[in-house]
Design a protein around this nucleic acid. Structure first.
Lengths: 351, 351
DNA sequence: ATCCTCCGTGTAATCGATTCCACGAGGAGG
DNA sequence: CCTCCTCGTGGAATCGATTACACGGAGGAT
């Protein structure tokens, strides 16, 4: 592969001139520039990004470590991150942690070894030591979706509290009283938060959330299935199951079907994270939608700010309830009643 | 960030000794090695991958350019590629072409600029010039899923011919005669092949494939919707629509619903590429499943062979039909009848 | 005792870029 | 005509690793 020396030789100038010509430096004569460009063309020269990065100490690359690529929510997030980064002149290297702390650590390490300019993380657990070291050492970093408390890193996420309140109002309005949740891992912020929000919303209606109605999942389909089976085995099974992510909702749907039961007649189902497929399941699933595209964009912008040495602010965007048929009763045009304050806008979707 | 010089100073040895100690070179005394390791520990030293790659001329990184991340098929492919690569000591950088030739070219270029050791591509179109140049110039390269004819690069893909025959047999057995297809872009091999296989299979039953029953799609949901609307507007609409990928099937489902029609009573639906969600749609979708994990693995192995300077062989794995309810009649235990030769094994899945 | 071999180590070249500094030519100003 | 700037350019240092080569000392063979 042709190097800058070859180009210099071909153009009859020094490597310094080639470099200057290619980087738009002003003090290069038009003649020299033209000869360089011609040489580049005939040799098919492309600058070696490794050498350039080594010298300039910047890679114009962002690392993104997500919890699970197979989860459509994260796929969409990754896509929007890459889009925004590209618009800003950055590349993105994606690491898939598969909800495994060891893999998360592996990817953080390789990304850091590559000297990426900044790191976007959706932490799987309390945080890999490598990651915390990097954060302390001043590596530009931003948390997306999930975060680690007590670490001084901007967080870009969406707040589901209002949407969860809307969901509970919707369920209560349909006459449901026994509501259960499939929780995410307690090690993740989203895992804890969604349970808390659910519990609070229930409390506003004077509804309890007994321990038996809190199933411990891990954000994967398999756990959704197992937890739901447990719910169905209860002497008094819940009327509605709320899954804290879309994969567990899928598992729940599996479990319900395997028993020959129907949604929503026999048991209702709702999910956190809305995905295109939920429109086409049987029945369409009521879900809480995050503004995923906006989250990705905001995260990249915050990170690039940090890279530029500026603050890079945390961003919290609201999630919203999308009512479909999986909790009973086809959606009507009236809004669900609310306990005290008026609910945030609810989008209704017709399948 | 600490460099090898700092480690050398801290350990009281030369950089050469540090390098040797860290790379397991035999001729380093135990004492020196211990001092180096201690220095590495106290400084939190990590080798700079850029510098190492620049010197050794290998990045231990593979590039993967896929046509569309939001397509679960490609997501799963990416996941298995990364897994196998990691097992073999390689990292993977994913580029998402979004079915756009310009984006494909962009990613190929950035990956090549980074001096990746090898490139895995699922070409969006006839092939970006940069990619063809690289192939000719000897960059180790392997095509996955789709390929470009006439380029001397191994191809790892799955053959859907037998499965498409099984599908047509299944449909014929159900009494369907008017069968339509939503084709992929003619620029892609998979786009053409699936139509050809479908036409051949129909011919075996003496069924025609009129032009009106061939809708031109682009592997995205939107096109599936548009094409299906066209089919439904026909004076004599097809009895079954076969979508050449899962996203277009989703669009088809949309279009059918929007008309207030039901699947499979009013119109049947089948798809190429099976994905977990197809089990949970209304109704579950009959699909042709590719051995995605195996494809990813085989592709990485072939590429690594090429990188090692060996041949790296092409691999073709069979796809198989998974019968569900979207074409009518709940699956029974008997196999669909076949025209001439016996069909390949058909998996039946109970929702 | 002498010579040779081998082992552990250090010095320095190298990979491909960027960039500081010096230098020569040419034009402007005195 | 001399001096001083400016402009375009080249030489060489530099980034952080790997590795060829040289070298000194220990130990074995003769």
């Amino acid at each position: 592969m042709a190097s800058i020396k070859d180009v210099a030789a071909e153009a009859g100038v020094s490597v310094a001139t080639v470099s200057r010509a290619l980087n738009g430096h002003p003090s290069v004569s038009a003649a020299a520039r033209a000869r360089v460009l011609a040489a580049v063309e005939t040799l098919g020269y492309r600058p070696n990004a490794l050498a350039r990065s080594l010298r300039t100490d910047q890679t114009r690359t962002l690392g993104l470590v997500i919890s699970d690529v197979m989860n459509p929510y994260f796929t969409e997030l990754a896509r929007s991150v890459e889009e925004e980064a590209r618009a800003l002149g950055y590349s993105v290297i994606i690491g898939n942690a598969d909800e495994r702390p060891d893999l998360q650590d592996h990817h953080v390490t390789t990304l850091l070894d590559r000297r990426i300019d900044g790191l976007l993380v959706s932490p799987t657990d309390g945080g890999s030591p490598r990651m915390l070291d990097a954060a302390r050492a001043g590596t530009p970093m931003v948390f997306v979706d999930r975060w680690i408390p007590g670490v001084d890193v901007p967080v870009v996420r969406s707040d589901g509290r209002a949407a969860v309140r809307d969901l509970v109002a919707h369920l209560h309005g349909l006459g449901h009283r026994r509501l259960a949740i499939i929780a995410g891992p307690a090690a993740t912020t989203t895992g804890r938060e969604r349970v808390d929000a659910f519990r609070e919303a229930l409390a506003a209606y004077g509804l309890p959330l007994p321990d038996a109605y809190i199933g411990q999942g891990d954000f994967q389909a398999g756990s959704g299935r197992r937890v739901t089976e447990g719910f169905l085995d209860l002497p008094e099974p819940p009327e509605v199951v709320f899954a804290a992510d879309n994969l567990m909702a899928l598992g729940a749907l599996d479990a319900v079907r395997a028993r020959g039961l129907r949604v929503p007649e026999d048991i209702g189902l709702a999910a956190f994270d809305d995905i295109p497929w939920f429109l086409h399941t049987d029945p369409p699933v009521t879900a809480i939608a995050q503004p995923t595209r906006d989250l990705g964009r905001a995260a990249v912008r915050a990170l690039v700010e940090r890279i530029a040495g500026r603050a890079g602010e945390s961003v919290t965007l609201p999630a919203r309830l999308v009512v479909r048929r999986s909790c009973g009763e086809p959606p009507s045009e009236q809004r669900p009643p609310s306990p005290a304050q008026s609910p945030s806008p609810v989008q209704r979707s017709t399948p």
